[in-house]
Simulated assay, not measured.
Amino acid sequence: MSSDAPRHRCTRLSCVTDTEGVGGRSAVVTGGNKGIGAAIVAALLEQGHRVASFSRGGDAPEGALGIACDVTDAAQVDAAFKQAEEAHGPTEILVANSGVTKDTLVLRMSEADFDLVLDTNLKGAFRCAKRASRSMLRRRWGRIIFTGSVVGLYGSPGQVNYSASKAALVGVARSLTREIGARGITANVVAPGFIETDMTATLAEDVVAGYHAAIPAGRLGATREVAATVAFLASEGAGYISGAVIPVDGGLGMGH
C-alpha cells in the first residue's frame, strides 16, 4: 500500500479516516458531563477531535476540556466558546446536547416549568448554534448536531414542554440548512428513544418491561449507539446529509 493512501482505523464506535482534519477538529459538546453527552464526548475523542465539554459544573470526561456554562445565559455561552477556542481553535463541530425535563400533565404545568425547558433545550441550542456558526462560516466547514428526542415528533403525555422543545429543533436544523448549507455547514437532529442511563436504571421492572414491549427492537438503547450516530454526522463522510432527523430508537417512532 502506498504511504500516501488514506489510512483507516476502526473502533468499537466507528471507522474513521486518518486524513479527517490535521490533528482532528475542534468540537464543543454541551451537557457532555454525563449520560448520552459523555458518550458523545468519548466518541469524538476516539475520532481524534479536540473536545470541549460544557456543563453547569464544568466537569468533563477524561480527555476533554471541561468548561462551566449555563446555556440559558448568553454571556456564559459566549465566554465558554471563547475559552474553548483559545484552547482548541475555532469551533468546527457543535453537538447541542444540553437538556432538562419538568414533566407533568398540562393542567398542572406552570409557566415557569414550560419556560425553563424551552429556554434550556431550544433557546440554549439556538444560542450555541449562533455562536458556533461564526467560525464555521469563516472556515466554510461545520457540523451542527442537535440532540432531539423520539417524543419530539411522537409525543408523550406529561411532556408538552419537552416535546415542544425537541420538535422545534427540527425546524431550527432545517432552517439553518437552507441558510448556511452552501458554506459547507450541515445541521442535523439525532432523535434518541429510550436509552439506558442512570435515570432509566431507577425505573421499576414493570415500567421497563412496558418499554421493551413497545419498542420493536425489544430493548432499550445504549448511549454508545447514540454517540456513534453523532460521531458519523460529525465526520467528513456525512457532508451531504443536512436537515435530517436520524432516529436512534429501536423503531419506536418509525420516523414520525
Rank of each mutant, 00 (worst) to 15 (best):
T11E: 11
A201E: 04
I93T: 08
I40V: 14
L137T: 03
M1C: 15
D70Y: 07
V248G: 01
T91D: 03
V160E: 08
E225L: 14
R143F: 02
R174N: 14
R224Q: 15
H256L: 15
A213F: 08
K166L: 13
E85Y: 09
D59M: 06
G66L: 07
K166V: 13
A213S: 12
C128V: 08
G99F: 09
A217W: 11
A209F: 12
A112I: 01
F232V: 04
P216S: 01
V22N: 13
S165D: 11
G184H: 04
A168W: 06
A80F: 03
E111W: 13
A234N: 03
A213I: 02
T223D: 09
S14E: 12
G58R: 04
A222W: 09
A64P: 13
R219I: 09
D198P: 11
F114L: 09
A244R: 11
R138W: 09
R174F: 10
I67K: 01
L105F: 12
G251N: 04
A132H: 03
G155F: 05
L153Q: 15
R131W: 01
A244L: 15
E225N: 14
G32L: 01
S235P: 00
K82T: 10
N188I: 09
P157C: 11
V160A: 15
V22L: 15
H88D: 06
S149H: 03
N121D: 04
G218P: 10
T72W: 03
S156G: 02
V151G: 05
N97W: 03
P61D: 12
A191M: 01
V100A: 04
T200H: 04
I180F: 07
V208D: 05
A244H: 15
L153Y: 08
A132E: 07
T177R: 15
A164I: 05
S2H: 11
E20I: 05
T91E: 04
D119M: 01
A79I: 04
R134S: 06
D198E: 14
A68G: 04
K130S: 07
R50Q: 15
P247K: 07
A238I: 03
A201N: 05
K123H: 07
W141V: 07
V100D: 03
M136V: 00
E236F: 08
R56W: 05
T202N: 14
T186H: 00
C69W: 02
G31L: 02
F114C: 02
H8G: 12
R183V: 06
P6T: 09
T186S: 02
A125W: 01
P247Y: 05
E20N: 11
G58V: 05
C10S: 08
K166W: 06
E196V: 11
D59R: 05
A222H: 14
D103I: 07
P6E: 10
A84C: 10
R56C: 04
L65E: 02
A173G: 08
A38D: 00
A187E: 11
T186I: 00
C10G: 05
I185K: 05
P247Q: 07
C128G: 08
D103R: 10
P6L: 08
L137Q: 06
V172C: 13
R224G: 13
F146Q: 03
L118G: 08
L94V: 02
S242Q: 03
G152K: 05
A42M: 10
Y154I: 11
D73P: 00
R7W: 02
A132V: 06
F54G: 14
